[in-house]
């Protein structure tokens, strides 16, 4: 770990007067990365004691402070009642100990688990721009099948962010000059392109202050995480699904996938095909086949092209109580 300065932010408003530095929240990912010197900030700005740690019910929605822990968010009565996909996604992540430390803002900004990103002896454009990507021809079972580039095939590891994307949550930020903005959760992260070192659209010094959950979310919600062991494993593939069924037709269909891309992947093509239609297993299959049209495997992760749509279809089937059309 490289020696660093430590500052503590007293309040959101004090941001402009602070020394510049990397923001430290729960530290469940950043501290590890600093130990390995994958991240080597000169200074940390601890934002855990600057307020931003309450959940406020607004007009039908919820305003979640960025320092609310994953445990507190998952167990909040309003979250469990109105946004069960979020509660479920949070609880499927990490372990109780980690969830007690990890925060809402920090969870969005955790970095990839790509093993080549973690191994500083290997080529990784995300860690060391221009060094290449050893995952392309290497061990890539966990890697992206959608939206990847020749420079990076890493995936975003968050469960929470996938649910947030499906819920159309809005991320509120504050810059050092005091300017605030609202970023749709679906647009917070970016695809790797030729700059995989940049995970998200936040500017230097821009801090996530809160996350807004929308009013009247779809009533039917579920999060399904597919993983190798029953707990404490990153998703091989995950799916957050939310929709309503009115008069036998699907409305407000939102589908987001985790473990398949550099960002939570909104399956908008599938959503469009399902919107306003009567649920049926055959339609689910067709919609997800369309969504996967451009999916590309890297070798070890080829199976995800089959796994991802099956996972979504299974969730859709459960939510809409469609009988399977088996064999």
């Amino acid at each position: 770990m490289k020696p660093f300065d430590y500052h503590r932010l007293a309040s959101e408003e004090a941001l402009g007067k602070m020394e510049a530095g990397r923001y430290l929240a729960g530290g469940t990912n950043l501290i590890d990365l600093m130990k390995h010197q994958i991240e080597t900030p000169d200074a940390l700005v601890d934002v855990t004691r600057a307020g931003m740690d309450t959940i406020t019910e607004t007009d039908g929605g919820l305003m979640v402070g960025s320092q609310v822990t994953n445990t507190d968010l998952a167990s909040h009565p309003a979250v469990r009642r109105d946004y069960p996909v979020l509660s479920s996604a949070l609880l499927s992540g990490a372990t109780q100990q980690l969830r007690n430390k990890a925060t809402t803002g920090g969870n969005f900004l955790q970095r990839t688990r790509c093993q080549y990103f973690y191994d500083t002896t290997r080529a990784c454009n995300k860690r060391a721009p221009g060094s290449g990507c050893d995952a392309l021809e290497g061990l890539n079972r966990y890697h992206a099948i959608l939206g990847a580039s020749e420079h990076c095939i890493a995936v975003h590891p968050s469960d929470m962010a996938v649910a947030m994307a499906a819920l159309d949550a809005v991320v509120h930020t504050r810059k050092r000059d005091g300017e605030t903005r609202a970023i749709p959760a679906t647009e917070l992260h970016r695809l790797p392109g030729d700059r995989p070192d940049i995970d998200h659209v936040l500017e230097d010094g821009e801090l996530i202050t809160s996350v807004e959950l929308p009013v009247r979310p779809p009533r039917l919600q579920a999060y399904r995480k597919v993983r190798d062991r029953a707990s404490y494993a990153f998703a091989v593939v995950s799916a957050a699904v939310a929709l309503d069924v009115d008069d036998g037709r699907m409305r407000n269909v939102r589908i987001a996938l985790g473990g398949v891309a550099h960002k939570p992947w909104r399956a908008s093509r599938a959503e469009e095909m399902l919107e306003g239609q009567q649920p049926s297993a055959e339609l689910f299959d067709r919609a997800m086949d369309a969504e996967m049209a451009e999916a590309k495997g890297q070798g070890h992760n080829d199976f995800k092209i089959r796994l991802a749509p099956r996972t979504v279809v299974a969730v859709l089937r459960d939510l809409t109580e469609v009988t399977e059309n088996d064999e």
């Binding site: 093993q115 080549y116 191994d119 002896t121 290997r122 050893d134 021809e137 290497g138 061990l139």
Partner: peptide, 9 residues
């Protein structure tokens, strides 16, 4: 990773 003889996980 059999290109380098390094354990990765």
């Amino acid at each position: 990773d059999d290109r380098y003889g390094s354990f990765m996980n």
